[in-house]
């Protein structure tokens, strides 16, 4: 019986292809009441850099900073950029509204938006 409970637990969290707040313990959702994300900009930049590196079309040698532009520096076309932004969305469990996403051209702009959005984690 105990075993079964333990076994059920990981499968609950693992299904989170569609992640949502309410599966998590309630205390962690306290951060939702702050106006901005609890993540630091450095942390966001590092995680975005990791996403870009695992995104196979990019030149991996390029060192990624806030100034890195998706099209100019990474050589991404408009379709690639869309795909990269979706990967970043997945990484931070958020969805960029279309109007925001259309204007995101660099790592720095993306970091700013994520830092200002309370849902990001």
């Amino acid at each position: 019986m105990f075993r079964s409970v333990f076994r059920a637990a990981p499968s609950l969290t693992r299904v989170s292809g569609l992640r949502s707040g309410f599966v998590k313990p309630t205390f962690s959702s306290a951060s939702r009441f702050y106006a901005s994300s609890s993540l630091s900009k450095e942390e966001i930049t590092t995680r975005i850099a990791d996403v870009i590196k695992s995104f196979d079309k990019t030149a991996s040698a390029t060192s990624i900073t806030a100034n890195t532009q998706f099209s100019k520096d990474l050589g991404l076309d408009s379709l690639d950029t869309v795909e990269l932004l979706v990967s970043i969305e997945e990484e931070f469990d958020i969805e960029f509204p279309d109007k925001v996403a259309d204007e995101l051209k660099s790592v720095g702009e993306t970091v700013e938006y994520i830092a200002s959005s309370p849902e990001a984690n």
Binding site: V15, D77, S78, L79, V82, V86, E90, A101, D102
Partner: peptide, 27 residues
């Protein structure tokens, strides 16, 4: 992409929806 203005944005939004939904498939 030769499509310009409104249609280009529309196409990119459509592409985003495809990628978003496809990547959520569990299988």
């Amino acid at each position: 992409m030769p499509a310009t203005g409104a249609s280009k944005t529309q196409i990119l939004h459509m592409y985003k929806e495809f990628i978003r939904n496809a990547s959520k498939i569990q299988n």
